[in-house]
């Protein structure tokens, strides 16, 4: 069963591939969508009444915020330290945890599906993918200049593929060292076990600009493979990127 949900300012594609009655699959899709809308309502920086917006205006304290928001704020702080400040939820001058929330919320959604016995599925949220199951999912990496082409095809059985790039929304990732939009890389794709981290690593690498390749190389020791394309069209991949023909 396939479903596309408009949520979090993007389109989320869901495919459940387990052989189960339609009504069960429909209920599972509804549960995933309900969760994503709950996340959007709480974390959106576009909704005036979200907890993040209220936190920004000083109307909500950390102590009074939902445990999920507390978790996200704590994780962003940890990642800021772990990445030497390159993953910066405050880069825009005020708290914006969006760079963490999408990957994390999809990782949680996929875990909920697995806990409900739906073991073979994928969720793709605006280009960030979490796939599971007893089959191989073929994930294309969008060509950074040609929207209808892919630059690589990856085989994923249980894992995540996240891409950060400048070609959809312009220079939305700030390099905190320069204070300006990161422009060195056109796109960074990270493949690994957890979508939360894959997404964070991709965003961090994009922000690092020319330092990114060293960073991506080090991530291979943690099980994260990657592909990066520079603005001038050079492509770099880590040795164990699961590329298929």
């Amino acid at each position: 069963m396939r479903h596309v949900e408009q949520v979090m300012g993007t389109a989320v594609s869901i495919e459940l591939a387990d052989d189960r009655p339609d009504e069960e699959l429909r209920a599972l899709v509804a549960d995933v969508c309900g969760w994503l809308h709950e996340v959007d309502a709480r974390f959106s920086t576009y909704k005036e009444d979200s907890e993040v917006s209220r936190l920004r205006r000083g109307e909500l304290t950390y102590a009074d915020s939902h445990p999920d928001l507390q978790h996200v704020l704590g994780a962003c702080a940890d990642l800021w330290r772990a990445t030497d400040g390159y993953f910066d939820a405050y880069a825009g001058g005020t708290i914006d945890p969006s760079g963490y929330v999408k990957g994390w919320s999809v990782e949680v959604a996929s875990a909920r599906l697995a806990a409900a016995g739906c073991h073979t599925h994928y969720i793709g949220a605006g280009g960030d993918i979490r796939a599971r199951g007893d089959r191989v999912w073929r994930v294309g990496v969008r060509h950074p200049w040609q929207a209808d082409k892919v630059a690589w095809k990856l085989a994923v059985t249980d894992g995540a593929v996240a891409t950060s790039g400048t070609y959809e929304r312009g220079g939305h990732v700030i390099n905190p060292r320069t204070g300006r939009p990161a422009t060195f890389l056109r796109s960074v794709t990270v493949v690994g076990p957890d979508l939360t981290l894959a997404d964070v690593h991709a965003t961090t690498a994009l922000a690092m600009e020319s330092e990114a390749l060293s960073y991506l190389e080090k991530l291979t020791a943690e099980g994260y493979e990657s592909a990066a394309v520079t603005e001038d069209g050079q492509a770099f991949t880590t040795p164990d990127l699961p590329v298929v023909a």
């Binding site: 408009q6 300012g9 993007t10 389109a11 594609s13 495919e15 999408k102 994928y122 793709g124 605006g126 280009g127 960030d128 993918i129 796939a131 999912w137 073929r138 994930v139 294309g140 990496v141 969008r142 060509h143 950074p144 040609q146 209808d148 082409k149 892919v150 630059a151 690589w152 095809k153 990856l154 593929v161 996240a162 891409t163 950060s164 790039g165 400048t166 070609y167 959809e168 929304r169 796109s187 794709t189 390749l213 991506l216 190389e217 394309v229 069209g233 050079q234 492509a235 770099f236 991949t237 880590t238 040795p239």
Partner: peptide
């Protein structure tokens, strides 16, 4: 040295299950 440098390929994506890319808007 530790990464593979290559020319960027452009392939048809009609045989993939999903596409990973920079976050698109609706």
């Amino acid at each position: 040295k530790k990464l593979n440098a290559s020319a960027l390929k452009a392939e048809n994506g009609d045989d993939v299950d999903a596409v990973s890319g920079a976050t698109f808007t609706t």
